[in-house]
């Protein structure tokens, strides 16, 4: 038996909007720790890892570990039927082949339940080691989204170069080239507006902008984004989900042949 009650239902709606274009089908894993997901995109270039900790739910009952295969597009369709202020409860029976999403309006005058069919998904789970990254950039998530969107109108790939001086996003395309440099800036009124660059050593990596743009669909989840890089390793683009956990996107770099 599984019953997870989330007061801030809009968080789950935003999570689905953030990942549904990247991943088609995925297993949601439920354990005493929380509600989580790990999935790769269809071309196995990017990976998304989501964690919503048990403590973040108003009620969290998970009698035994459960893995529920869901089509994210269908799940998104159902969650779109929940109001932004609704409380969302996820319910499932052990060994059942459906999951139920229950939506309660804030003043309890409307209660809906949507039952969705589960699916068997054969997915490999990757072990992601804890890594000390050579460069960690924290910046406003909207600024990062803006840069990715702007550069993708010029080129297909972005070179992200981080050094003590700042972080440079560069692209080239048929019509020309572009560079955007963000310097460390901590003299801001609100901490979420700061750009903070921690560097162990300079890093420069090339990525497909199409994926970066897809990751920025998580922007509504957090005011800030953290981009962690080490030479020749996948980048991690992380959006913290307030008091609940995170959504992390891993993207393999492009390399010279």
């Amino acid at each position: 038996m599984l019953e997870l009650r989330l007061l801030q239902g809009s968080l789950l709606k935003k999570v689905l909007e953030a990942i549904k274009d990247l991943v088609t089908d995925a297993n949601f894993d439920c354990s005493a720790t929380g509600f989580s997901l790990q999935a790769m995109d269809s071309s196995h270039v990017a990976l998304v890892a989501l964690l919503l900790r048990a403590e973040g739910f108003e009620h969290y009952r998970c009698d035994r570990n459960l893995s529920m295969g869901m089509n994210l597009n269908n799940m998104s369709k159902m969650l779109k039927c929940a109001g932004n202020d609704d409380i969302i409860t996820i319910k499932a029976d052990d060994g059942g082949d459906t999951v139920t999403f229950m939506f309660e309006s804030p003043n309890q005058d409307k209660i809906s339940d949507f039952e969705m069919k589960l699916m068997d998904i054969d997915s490999e789970h990757l072990g992601i080691p804890e890594t000390e990254y050579e460069a960690i950039i924290r910046m406003p998530s909207q600024e990062f989204a803006r840069i990715c969107r702007d550069l993708s109108t010029i080129g297909d790939t972005v070179v992200i170069s981080a050094s003590k001086e700042g972080v440079k996003f560069s692209t080239k395309g048929d019509i020309g080239s572009a560079n955007v440099v963000c310097r460390q800036n901590t003299s801001v009124d609100k901490p979420e507006d700061a750009t903070v660059i921690e560097i162990q050593q300079p890093v420069s990596l090339t990525f497909a902008l199409r994926y970066m743009n897809s990751f920025t669909k998580a922007t509504p989840l957090s005011n800030t984004v953290t981009v962690s890089m080490s030479n020749e390793l996948p980048v991690v683009v992380e959006y913290k989900i307030a008091e609940m956990g995170y959504i992390r996107f891993y993207l393999a770099p492009k390399i010279e042949e």
């Binding site: 790769m40 196995h44 270039v45 990976l47 072990g127 492009k254 390399i255 010279e256």
Partner: peptide
């Protein structure tokens, strides 16, 4: 030319 690596080539399968 640049080649796109696969993410699964970086992390071991559990």
């Amino acid at each position: 030319p640049q080649q796109q690596r696969s993410i699964s080539s970086f992390f071991a399968t559990k």
